[in-house]
Every structure is written in C-alpha cells, then in structure tokens.
C-alpha cells in the first residue's frame, strides 16, 4: 500500500504533472477573479444598511476562509512529511506558509478597513478577528522557525512539528477567544452581515471571487512548489537534463 504513496510523492511526477496543468489553472483563475470582482464592485446593488462598503466582504470572507483552509492543508502536508517522510509534502508546506500568512494578513486588513465605516473603529476585539490575528502569529512563527535552522532538513522537520502542535492548539485558541469575547462584549457584530439572508444577486459574485481565490492559491502554490522542487532536486539527473535543454528560456 505504501508504494503508491511514495510514487505519488515523487517530486518529478508532481513537476511533470503540473507542467501542462498550470497554464489552464492560471487562465481559469484570472477569469473567475475578474468576473467576480467586477460584478461585485460594480453591478451589485448597495446594501440597504451599510451602503457600498459591504463590497469589501467579497474579498474579506474568502481570505478568512482561505487562511484557515491553507493552514489545514499545511498541517496535512506536515503530517505526511513527519509520518511517511515524503519530501514533496514538506516542499508544499513550505510554499503554503507564505501564502497562508498573506491571506491571513489580508483578511485582517480588509476586516479592519471594513470595521471603520461600520463601527467607527479600525480594530475591534471580535472573536473571529482575534483568532485570525493569532493564526497570523502562528504562520509567522512557523516561517521564523523554518528559517532559523542552518540545515534545511532540520528546519523543515522543526516547522512540521510546530505546524502539528499548532493544528492541535488552534481550535482550542479559537474556542477560548470566542468564550473570552462573550465575557467582555455581546455577540460579534461582524458575523451578522454575512449570515443575513443575502439575495442571490448579492451572493453569486462572492461565489466567483471565492473560487477565483482558491484557484489563485493553488496556482501560486504550484509555481512555488515547482521552484522548491528544482532547488531540492538540483543534483538529480532529470533536473540537470531539464535545465540544459534549450527551450527553457528563462
């Protein structure tokens, strides 16, 4: 049963598979993003309560969901790296970290920029914003730990251990922040707008943008992972043969 896991985990297979697949993914992603954003920004009637600033939600919500999804994926990769010692999983986890931190930071920035017109302050200690802030701290901690090691192998293993410790802790952190929030304030206001019954024409652009951002994540992830593979497999025969071939123009 392990054979297919190792074969699947071979960096060369990943590289070859994604060579053809990547351009299509990029085109679909850009199409979805452009359609979703133009639609959301220009063609959706303003919200009766908040006027036009609810359009920030089209990127804020996918970013928040994306950040947590990326961490979950990173945790799976870390587990595969630690348990079955699949090097490809670590290369993917390494690329996830940077993207995850960006999605997380964007979620915070858009959340606070959306908070100013709606509640008058840039930052409110709302349960979800605080959990997102802590998730950003964990992302940064993982990247800092990975780069603190001289030997790349140890750095990856250490980062995987911290990722797994993090994935155990993050639900508890979220629960404690939610409880802490109810101790000090009423229920979070941010949640109200996204759960309110949105009519379809408000909701459908979010579908496009959401899919577009997921596509964007995978597209950027594949490109970064391919670079990591080239760097990691530099000594192997297929990389050297690939690099000497003329048609690689970069």
């Amino acid at each position: 049963m392990w054979q297919w896991l190792y074969r699947l985990g071979s960096p060369k297979l990943f590289y070859d598979m994604t060579t053809g697949f990547l351009p299509w993914l990029t085109i679909v992603t850009y199409f979805l993003l452009i359609v979703g954003l133009v639609w959301g920004l220009g063609f959706v009637p303003p919200d009766y309560q908040m006027g036009d600033n609810f359009r920030i939600a089209y990127i804020h919500i996918p970013m928040s969901v994306g950040a947590m999804g990326i961490y979950a994926m990173m945790a799976c990769m870390a587990a595969m790296h630690m348990i079955w010692n699949i090097k490809l999983a670590d290369l993917v986890a390494r690329s996830c970290a940077a993207l995850g931190a960006t999605y997380c930071a964007l979620s915070l920035v858009t959340g606070s920029l959306w908070g100013k017109p709606t509640w008058g302050t840039y930052w409110i200690w709302d349960a979800r914003l605080t959990s997102m802030l802590i998730l950003l701290f964990v992302f940064i901690a993982i990247m800092a730990l990975r780069s603190a090691y001289d030997s790349e192998n140890s750095g990856s293993k250490a980062a995987s251990v911290l990722t797994l410790v993090g994935v155990v802790n993050l639900p508890i952190i979220h629960y404690s922040v939610v409880w802490w929030n109810t101790l000090h304030q009423g229920d979070s206001i941010l949640g109200v707008s996204s759960q309110s019954a949105n009519p379809p024409e408000v909701w459908s652009p979010a579908f496009f943008v959401g899919l577009g951002l997921i596509g964007f994540f995978f597209q950027a992830l594949i490109r970064r992972t391919r670079n990591e593979i080239l760097l990691h497999e530099r000594r192997s025969q297929w990389v050297q043969q690939l690099l000497t071939s003329k048609q690689l123009q970069e």
């Binding site: 920004l41 600033n53 359009r55 920030i56 990127i59 804020h60 920035v109 920029l113 959306w114």
Partner: peptide, 9 residues
Amino acid sequence: FVWGAYAFF
C-alpha cells in the same frame, strides 16, 4: 475604505 482594501488586495 473600499479602494484601500482592494489596493492591499
């Protein structure tokens, strides 16, 4: 706020 958020994005 809207364009600021989209600018960061």
